[in-house]
Design a protein around this nucleic acid. Structure first.
Lengths: 383, 383
DNA sequence: GGAGTTGTTGCAATCGATTGCATAAAGGGT
DNA sequence: ACCCTTTATGCAATCGATTGCAACAACTCC
């Protein structure tokens, strides 16, 4: 090995000879490894140095030849030779080492409130799709029910050297927002936004969505509407609730005819409990608008429990159009939000923020669409 | 800064004085940064060196003090001082740098056939839960419809330095299996297995699951059963099909009374098409067992299209018990597999493989459970 | 033909943490 | 007092790729 190390380098004319030598060396190397047994990794991946030795050039030249941004600095024929050698050896750059030097890891952290929530995968899918196209990989972290872990998880991701963060978890006045700002790491929020709107975000027009739902129901003849609001510390929960009230008022409904119950979480069971509170009132609403499809599922449960029928006794409108709600009985009328598109846009925004850290904070608001199915109909008994 | 660098180190007695000096230095450093404007990263994270300087010890001592495995090598009081300084500075080790040196990244790659498939999130959730507890983070990659990308994606993950792989994508005779074996990287399969069973895997007993479904239907009086098989290059597709045939034969059904149609993919629409082929036969089956809930959804579609009723005209059994199939109309009778548990076990197996690369290849087979709901009933018209 | 360009390549420092080895001090035994 | 452990710490190399700078060649221009 030492004999080769001392060989002259950087001289084209000798390369044929060097290749010959190197082939011998490689064989020897293999034999040594096999003979000795386990010299650490048996199938240790080739490094930039191996490629350099095989070509008789300096590692730095290999680095430049293989980097699109720097390859113009190396002679075309040498670059070609290097690329060929790299391919022959099956060389793949060690991203960790490059990341240490350049300070960029090519990793993006994604914080999710709950991976198992059917609303999340489409967003994630959009995020990864766009990021993967730019060579980034994503680390998805499930925060779980305890939001206090969020801060620690962000720190862990930063320690891992992520180049940016996608947060699908933030609550209003979330301390993690300030934390990210202080760490000056590119961040983009998705589906939710912070109260101060200090960070770029991709959201849907929650208030417009509620207007679609309310107008649809009022158009059907409903005059007494219920709303099951989501957690009020989450932007969607607060905004959809506000949107419901505003839309109802605009449609001429009095405050007594707009009933609101708040769910403590976006879960089916919380939806059920809130729906029962609504149904069990003295004068129940003829239609209920849920802040979320999962809550709507709970409304179905409650309706069944009370022996009522949807939509004849109670109409139901969901929100998000999560997969397969068209298969429910009755198929759920819901406000569709473009989740995949939301993920794509969030990734795009994050890439922009990474490219130009000082750029302005953009905010993308997507327009929701009402999907009318079987869970809404004319009220049978006008109260 | 040079003046401090030259200060004597490794001497407890001088530490108070050094701390004093260092505080001064820190202030100066801050002032310099603020004054100069943007000295690269404004909020650059403190390194092990910063902690060392602050304590007047060598960086290696800090490294040892902060590493649980090595901390026994450093004096308790010094270790305490170091931990305090690290906490004060908000020091977090740079995982990238450590990974370069140690060769371990703390990253696990997960290959998924389709993140948006409702069956996958629970598995992923189980995997990340167990891995996160051991300090690992997961990179999830969506392979998408084109399986030829799998090999390249694996290589990319390996280039990223992942310590192991969880594959939820492999097909029978998948070349990627040999590729992983050759790369000698810890791998575990989940939900699917390779034909040669050369890799550790966590699967459910597919044949037992089909027996549960078939026996249930035969018990209800069905004598002519249909099966919608999944893709035959996927272990679940082939094994469930074989399980269906075996169970039907064991129950005394003739070959003419066991009808099989194969879906080209685990999708709702493929299920619909296959179900139509089954229903449109001269003598259709009175019950259909799907290899997967998504296919069962398609059966519902087909039944509706032909103006039939489930379960009175056709009973349907699904497989997987994916979220919210209890909300369908009728609620889906299905074979439940412990997806989250599957993820947990896969992660556990992978951790074992990383800890002891030479250990034997384990194989975990989970037992499925039949969940009887409303989509199965006695056949109305015995054919 | 000498000075100035342009184009290629090598050299060596660097990123931040880890770890085998050397060293120094403290403690123990006779 | 001397040698021999034990314990605690520092030193320097290392992981693999990147990049500013220097060096050298070939070429151009006057």
């Amino acid at each position: 090995m030492a004999s080769v190390k001392g060989a002259p380098a950087g001289c084209y004319a000798r390369c044929r000879a060097l290749e010959h030598w190197d082939d011998l060396r490689v064989v020897q190397k293999n034999r040594t490894v096999t003979g000795k047994g386990a010299r650490s990794a048996p199938a240790s991946r080739p490094t930039i140095k191996d490629v350099a030795e095989r070509c008789g050039v300096h590692p730095s030249t290999v680095s430049r030849a293989l980097s699109p941004a720097m390859s113009h600095l190396v002679a075309p024929d040498v670059a070609k030779r290097i690329r060929a050698a790299a391919a022959a050896l099956g060389y793949q750059p060690n991203v960790t080492a490059a990341g240490l030097r350049t300070g960029r890891s090519g990793l993006i952290g994604v914080l999710a409130p709950d991976i198992a929530d059917p609303g999340f995968p489409p967003i994630l899918s959009g995020v990864t799709e766009t990021l993967a196209a730019e060579g980034y990989a994503t680390i998805v972290v499930d925060v779980g029910p305890d939001p206090s872990r969020e801060r620690e998880l962000v720190d862990r991701l930063i320690a891992r050297g992520v180049d940016g963060l996608v947060l699908a978890t933030v609550v209003l006045n979330d301390p993690v927002v300030g934390h990210c700002l202080a760490a000056s790491i590119p961040v983009v929020l998705v589906n939710r936004s912070d109260s101060a709107r200090k960070l770029p975000a991709v959201v849907t027009d929650d208030e417009a969505g509620m207007r679609l739902a309310v107008d649809h129901l009022v158009g059907l003849g409903h005059r007494r509407l219920g709303h099951i609001a989501g957690p009020q510390d989450v932007s969607t929960g607060a905004l959809r609730r506000a949107g419901f009230k505003a839309a109802a008022a605009r449609a001429g409904l009095s405050a007594q005819n707009t009933l609101i119950e708040t769910a403590r979480a976006y879960t089916r069971d919380e939806g059920r409990l809130a729906a029962l509170r609504l149904i069990d009132r003295e004068r129940p609403p003829t239609a209920i608008v849920a802040a979320n499809d999962l809550l709507a599922l709970g409304i179905y449960d409650a309706i069944g429990e009370r022996g009522l029928k949807c939509p004849s006794d109670v109409s139901v409108v969901g929100h998000n159009d999560m997969p397969y709600v068209d298969m429910l009985s009755p198929p759920l009328t819901t406000v569709r939000i473009a989740q995949r598109e939301m993920g794509n846009q969030a990734a795009r925004l994050l890439l922009d923020a990474i490219a130009a850290p000082a750029a302005r904070r953009e905010r993308v608001v997507l327009e929701p669409v009402l999907i009318v199915r079987g869970s809404t109909g004319k009220p049978e008994r006008i109260p």
